[in-house]
Design a protein around this nucleic acid. Sequence first.
DNA 1: CCAAAAGTGTTATCGCTACACCCATGA
DNA 2: TCATGGGTGTAGCGATAACACTTTTGG
Lengths: 233, 233
Amino acid sequence: MQRDKKTFYQSATPILVAVDCIIFGFDNEALKLLLFKRKVEPFKEEWSLIGSFVEPDEGVKAAAGRVLRESTGLSDIYMEPLGYYGSVDRDPGDRVISQAHFALIRLGEEEIRMANTHRAHWFGLNAVPELILDHRQMVEDALAQLRRKARYQPVGFELLPEKFTIPQLKKLYDAIYQRTFDRRNFRKKILSMNILEKLDEKDKTSSRKGAYLYRFDQARYEEMVEKGVDFSL
Amino acid sequence: MQRDKKTFYQSATPILVAVDCIIFGFDNEALKLLLFKRKVEPFKEEWSLIGSFVEPDEGVKAAAGRVLRESTGLSDIYMEPLGYYGSVDRDPGDRVISQAHFALIRLGEEEIRMANTHRAHWFGLNAVPELILDHRQMVEDALAQLRRKARYQPVGFELLPEKFTIPQLKKLYDAIYQRTFDRRNFRKKILSMNILEKLDEKDKTSSRKGAYLYRFDQARYEEMVEKGVDFSL
DNA sequence: CCAAAAGTGTTATCGCTACACCCATGA
DNA sequence: TCATGGGTGTAGCGATAACACTTTTGG
């Protein structure tokens, strides 16, 4: 499919391009990072982010989507590009330019069990093992971006199930920013944004009284963005 | 140099990788964008961002630096990665993944004249001509990033000469955000950040009274970042 | 002496922070 | 009935926004 295009750019040299995914999850307590035992040399059997080379007839974004699908079994995961890692010597296996992406996953019991079967494991952020190449750097950059991003966009919701409680959401933000927000102020701020829809159900798994479940209101959020919202906590 | 590494990743297919630069400048009135008449087919002679292929023994960032140097003659330009543009069919000349970067330049008379000689031209943001490929999209994304970034980092200073006045700085922010900030509040906010060093000189080019010149205090800014600053206007 | 831009101060309002009490419920 | 987490209200403070007057100086 590419062949008939090769009339231009003859003098340029192609380079291997990979996508790597920093996959975060939240288990109601802490942020987790999904890592894999690498299957190929060099660094076979060491802990690594999941990645793949970009195919010639595949968009970069599509490649990242494919990697996520293949590694988690899930197909509509929130994902966004993080940046390139492009030094000449970053991979001793060859000159490879990596496009890092970060992804956010709603963690249920199944996801955790599933992952732990195939050479994959969810690590708490304070227990991340040594990683190959510049993957440690990628993880740090992804975390920084998640924090930055969560300030002005409701990305956090991607880490929660469809229905969630305010205390649950607060715990997530506590985990992301490694601090403890004030219950009352957090609630006030979040509700004042008008992007949550209160449901009639309660979740009683974590208290006798039960907490109301909410749903993220995508439509209302888009409206807000139009008008220019400030989303900082 | 690469040959002896090629023991791994045999099955992967290399792809052409380019860097493209969105170069902004400020002429004390409006934000300008530097564009070039393309020298190669396809789309020869059409307006385009400046770019180049990444060489096999060259880091991606280095490639962007080289492009900036070659196209402007300047070597320490502020530049940061914007993102990749990686769809399969974005360039009819071949499958090319582009790494977009945006750069900020201090515009003096010379820069403007210089540019206008070699097939290059500074365009006002409202007068940008039709661009090849997805370059229009890149420009829009870069502008969005500039606005986002200028909120929490003093990136605007890169667009001004070393010594500048507060009214000048305000004009720049007016241009970036396409609105008119209040003179007094702007001054108060900027000065309260403590990142400007007041000089004894005045600039009299734009008023009889003259405005004090200031210098950006990099060191003090770094301190602020440590403590976690809010930089929003 | 006047036009034109630079510089300064005050007030009202809004949003954030800190903080204490009541509520619902299962054991 | 009590322990536990969920839900609500308020007062103080700091930051922002709106706004008007004085200063300087070349012509």
